[in-house]
Simulated assay, not measured.
Amino acid sequence: MSRMVLLRDHLKYSDTFASWLHHQFAYEFGSQPLCEWQREFREGQNDASWRTLIMLEDDQLLGGAALAKHDLPERPELGPWLACVFVAPSARQRGLAERLISGLCSEAQALGHHQLYLHTQDRRDYYSKRGWQYVESFRAWGKEHSLMQLKL
């Protein structure tokens, strides 16, 4: 049975999850070396810049998602953000991403937030079906993205 936990309480998984993100979203990291991102991400668990929920099963990391203070340099006035949603390929098609997203929405509400933002390159339909509203399109990292918002 899979369980959702805060990464800050299970930091031994931080470097692995950060490396998955660095690989999956390489275009966002530009020239930031993996080791620097791993350090930033790990520190972000303690200062809440990257408050992350992870999914574990038999102590195996399956995926995670983060509540980020800042996730789009071009829009520093917006936040917090649903970010870093990633499920390992071997664990997909089990509804884990949806559970992680729902868990982060609950975390955000408990912290007093009334809305979340996200940006996506290719999953706009996925999020729209789950209540997220399209705000605008923009170009970043050499790609077209959709900015979306969810009222909590």
Rank of each mutant, 00 (worst) to 15 (best):
Y13F: 15
W141I: 00
W132V: 05
Y134H: 15
P76E: 02
L96A: 13
H113T: 00
R92G: 03
E57V: 00
E28Y: 12
L56W: 11
W141E: 07
E144N: 13
L111R: 14
L152Y: 08
L78E: 00
R39E: 09
A97Q: 10
G95T: 11
F29R: 07
V135G: 06
S14N: 02
M4C: 09
L118W: 04
R92I: 11
L67N: 03
V5H: 02
I54H: 03
Q32G: 00
R39M: 08
K69R: 12
V135C: 15
Q93Y: 13
L56V: 06
N46Y: 14
L62I: 04
G112F: 12
S137M: 06
H70V: 03
P89L: 13
P80M: 10
F86I: 04
L150K: 15
D15E: 13
Q38D: 03
R51P: 00
L7W: 08
A110I: 01
H22E: 01
L96G: 12
A18F: 10
G79Q: 10
A18P: 06
S14Q: 01
K12P: 00
S128H: 11
Q32F: 07
Y117P: 04
A18R: 07
V87A: 03
R75Q: 15
R92S: 08
Y13W: 14
K69V: 11
A91D: 01
T52E: 05
H10S: 09
E57S: 06
L78K: 13
L150W: 07
E43A: 14
W132L: 10
T52W: 12
Y134K: 10
Q32A: 10
P89F: 13
E98G: 13
D9P: 02
S106R: 15
Q93L: 12
R42S: 12
A140N: 06
Q133C: 09
L11P: 01
T16I: 14
N46Q: 14
M55I: 05
M1D: 00
S19I: 02
S19G: 09
S31N: 12
A88K: 08
L104Y: 05
Q149V: 15
A18C: 10
L82T: 09
G142Y: 11
K143E: 12
C105H: 11
D59P: 04
Q121N: 07
A97V: 12
V135A: 10
L104C: 05
L147I: 11
R51N: 00
E107A: 07
K69Y: 04
E57H: 07
P76S: 07
L67M: 06
Y27N: 06
G30K: 15
L56G: 03
Y27L: 10
S31M: 09
A91E: 02
R130V: 03
R42D: 00
